[in-house]
Simulated scan of single mutants.
Amino acid sequence: MILLECSCFTFNKPRPLRPHSNSSSTFSSLIINGGGHRIRTIKRVQCLRSCDLIDFHQDLIPYEVAWSLQKHIVKEKKSQIQNEGDCNDTLIVLQHPSVFTLGTASSNNNLNFDIKNPPFDIHRTERGGEVTYHGPGQLVMYPIMNLRKHKMDLHWYLRTLEEVVIRVLSSTFSIQASRMEGLTGVWVGNEKVAAIGIRVDQWITYHGLALNVMTDLSPFKWIVPCGIHGRQVGSIKGLLKETQLSCNDHETADLYHLDDASLIHITHKSLIEEFSKVFQLEYNHKIISVPMLCESARK
């Protein structure tokens, strides 16, 4: 990650530095003892970028509503950057009702149904990638970020989104996930548990990642997920069950026996925490009424 660096030297005892809202800077404090001959320590305090958190993780937000919200926020951020030089980042977290989405690389050959008569709503979008499914029990994260203030590198951004999920699975569920050479997403063995598809407009990101928590995986049979043949789709709940059956890990067994709402809650909390750590952000919680959001999208 590229950081804007600024060094500050002081002969006094350093005070804790409060995070600055629109920069990600590293400050150094140099402390000198007595007659000024001996350096005692160097203290570094990380200042975090501000990120607006729009949290609907317990709600089912129609895809077209979330899509409209993202495009509206992107437009606002582009205007703010033009006028002020920077903007806060934004993270939207939610679930969707059952829906298929197609990326710019999508081919109808990866649909196992008549596109004129789909089993669920279907949307062709401007994100990269192939066809995927969203549905209840899947946590979706839409980061809308100014990459000029992080790193202007799309490969870095994709790998960093993958890193967020890999850390969540390891730290919260003791599930060892990995990347697959040449493919985007997060895998556990032969099962893909998180799909990623993004769009970047003037270095502002939108769309994002979807993590299967306790998702009904049967709708994936209607498509070739992400256009990848010969691979399976998995979920956290399914992986916990497999782990429970194969070992005597009581902690993992307890996680498997969580009700669905608790499993979503634990995963959501971990996603939010790991995302802030990896991208070095602090959150400002933004409250939006779901009915008002839906009404606004219909206009």
Rank of each mutant, 00 (worst) to 15 (best):
I2S: 13
L4T: 10
E5A: 10
C6H: 12
F9L: 11
N12A: 14
N12D: 07
K13M: 05
R15V: 15
F27E: 11
S28P: 15
S29L: 09
L30T: 07
R40T: 11
T41V: 14
I42R: 04
K43W: 06
Q46R: 10
L53Q: 15
V65Y: 09
Q70K: 06
I73K: 05
V74T: 13
N83M: 11
G85P: 00
N88S: 10
N88F: 10
L91M: 04
H96Q: 06
T101L: 13
T104H: 08
S106I: 15
S107Y: 04
N112F: 10
N112S: 15
N112H: 13
N117F: 03
P118V: 03
P119K: 02
F120V: 05
H123G: 03
R127V: 11
G128E: 05
G129L: 10
V131A: 15
T132W: 03
T132Y: 01
Q138M: 00
V140E: 00
L147Q: 13
W156A: 08
I166W: 03
V168L: 00
L169N: 00
F173K: 05
S174T: 11
Q176G: 08
M180K: 13
L183S: 05
G185W: 06
Q202R: 03
W203R: 04
H207Y: 06
H207W: 04
G208F: 02
M214H: 03
T215A: 00
P219Y: 05
P219M: 13
G227A: 03
G230H: 06
G238T: 01
L239M: 05
E242G: 06
C247R: 07
C247Y: 14
D259R: 04
S262E: 04
S262I: 05
S270E: 00
H285K: 12
P291Y: 01
M292E: 08
L293M: 07
S296W: 12
K299S: 09
